[in-house]
Design a protein around this nucleic acid. Sequence first.
DNA 1: CTAGACCTTCACGCCGGCGGCAGGGTCAAG
DNA 2: CTTGACCCTGCCGCCGGCGTGAAGGTCTAG
Lengths: 133, 133
Amino acid sequence: MRIGELARRTGATPRALRYYEEQGLLRPERRPSGYREYDERDVDAVHAIRTLFAAGLNSATIAEILPGLPSPGHRRPGPTCPELLAGLARERTRITRQMDELASARDLLDTIMGAQAPSEVIRARPQAPAAPR
Amino acid sequence: MRIGELARRTGATPRALRYYEEQGLLRPERRPSGYREYDERDVDAVHAIRTLFAAGLNSATIAEILPGLPSPGHRRPGPTCPELLAGLARERTRITRQMDELASARDLLDTIMGAQAPSEVIRARPQAPAAPR
DNA sequence: CTAGACCTTCACGCCGGCGGCAGGGTCAAG
DNA sequence: CTTGACCCTGCCGCCGGCGTGAAGGTCTAG
């Protein structure tokens, strides 16, 4: 598929997809015309990329770990190289800490908004189901 | 106290504290010399500010909601104005969504790292207790 | 009185994930 | 052949929470 369709199927803009390639995150084929040609696996890859970006990882880090991405059911043998594994663990820790900070901030908002038992408010807000984007 | 001490006690840099003032988040007194003079409540305020920044709120939003900050045990009467309340709710929703995204990213990292049951790995990582910063 | 730690106000720099535009090719339908 | 949708490669812009000097005043211990 071409870049426009991939964009529609992933929610990313064409500009973003070109940027991903520039950062070494995608390696689409090229038609003689110069047009980029993507395949199905790129759809999953883009979703992963966006998820990781949203979690605060930078493109360099994502570039390192993307090769470890399993196609559904396809199990990678050695997770990866040792130092990379350490990096992943650090990112994981970062993410967990970030989640804690978010929880704190949310509690803070809750007290400001007048809720008294912050941890109980969590399950008490079934508002705004899941906006597309 | 002066800016240096507040900085030490909050983990913020003096530069950051001046920036907070510039954004209307703090209103320290001034000595005749021009030196800023902070009080104890500013310590709590700075912690709140940093927490909210860490959660992705911008300074304008924080400036709006900071007046609603209760001193310990001091209950604010009307939570605030109505539209502000809606804004808070939106931020809250944003934060919750962000937490979900972080969870997804973490699960993704887990599968890449070779863990098989992502949701069970969460309680299996008592590493790096709580770095001071 | 003096040193040196601390403070003040500018004001430019930075980063990184794109947005957006210009100027030009490609491709399928009619 | 033409039209219009789509694609290409540059390349500048942006945002926002500070970092980092520069050039100069202030405060306190000795």
